[in-house]
Nucleic acid binder design. Sequence first.
DNA 1: GCACAGATCCACCGAACGGTGGAGGCGCGA
DNA 2: TCGCGCCTCCACCGTTCGGTGGATCTGTGC
Lengths: 206, 206
Amino acid sequence: MIRLLIVDDHPIVRGGLRDTFADAEDIVVVGEARDGAEGVERAKALAADVVLMDLRMPGMDGVAATATLREQAPGARVLILTTFDSESDVLPAIEAGAIGYLLKDALPEELMRAVRAAARGESVLAPSVTQHLMGQVRKPNAGTLTDREKEVLQLVANGSSNREAAAALFIGEASIKTHLQHIYDKLGARDRASAVAEGYRRRLLT
Amino acid sequence: MIRLLIVDDHPIVRGGLRDTFADAEDIVVVGEARDGAEGVERAKALAADVVLMDLRMPGMDGVAATATLREQAPGARVLILTTFDSESDVLPAIEAGAIGYLLKDALPEELMRAVRAAARGESVLAPSVTQHLMGQVRKPNAGTLTDREKEVLQLVANGSSNREAAAALFIGEASIKTHLQHIYDKLGARDRASAVAEGYRRRLLT
DNA sequence: GCACAGATCCACCGAACGGTGGAGGCGCGA
DNA sequence: TCGCGCCTCCACCGTTCGGTGGATCTGTGC
């Protein structure tokens, strides 16, 4: 029997998860917590096998809670369940010691399979998360923008269109587009908006 | 005779400015400074009438220096001369007590006219800066995003398209577009990328 | 000498975005 | 009760963006 702890600040989400696992004969939800600190405490007190952890919570967030659990309760496997899959969410969580990373659009069956896998010590990742990780491995220089790319990103952050950025740098519009494509690849971004966001998160922009 | 002090961390810029004012018979450059702290000190020691101040400098920046000068040397008029005209640069500078705000693409004649105007206690603003200010005046609640708008901006920063953001918030795509238009208005942004940038600068986004 | 990374440029296409000018509903405070 | 702010939605249009798969030229380092 897998002892599961749910950590999420939204009551609705907790309710939905409780229902989901009510059907499972080999999984029992032994408790819930509303934030990271409570999650750590309960995981220890209840001897949870698997902790289903949200990332964004008030107070201690999911990353900090995961890191703390790795230290204080190494037996508990942390499975991240969150809405976001940007690199800046995924990588810290994996580094902190999460064994899996799922998105909230996962189907109930996927969720249960993931919990069972986590209990066995196996890793389960959402497909888009896998992409990010492979990106990290495949390109050691990913996340390191060249000077030119940083210039382009800064201009885009300041509201320049491709045409305007090209004029500002005295190059062609096509080059701006190429630079942006490289930036998207390196930052794991889908468009200029998310690239700018990643730029700020990684302190590449002012 | 207008006593002018130049405060900028780039020697090239200081040199160019010195040359510019060498031709003016009614303006004398009484000194230069490399950062805000030095600027404050020299403005007092040299009894400058007008201080030409860069915003982004190592150590004490232009905003802090302007505020300090307003206290310690109320006679010195601070004229901002910088490369950037985003709201997050302009507004703090004006609040700190700058009498004018010019961009570095200004022509020498404009610069001299501005210095003379500043010496007379008149305000001179670059056109794009005026836009920002008028936007502030016209809408007292500009810059304060509603909770819903913050949600939308956060989703956009995480790479959501309008369609995806709409799905995430259980509303229509048209509503997302409307929210974004309001966000652009309030933040003085032109597109989702610059809106995300302003969001980070104003610490609205994580 | 050659590989490699970086910067520049090209063409094509569909999809998404931004601009504009509306509209209705709801709740709150004057 | 009457505005006002906020959230929601609609239609139309031109422009821009993102995706793809190339290409050349430079400088650096092995």
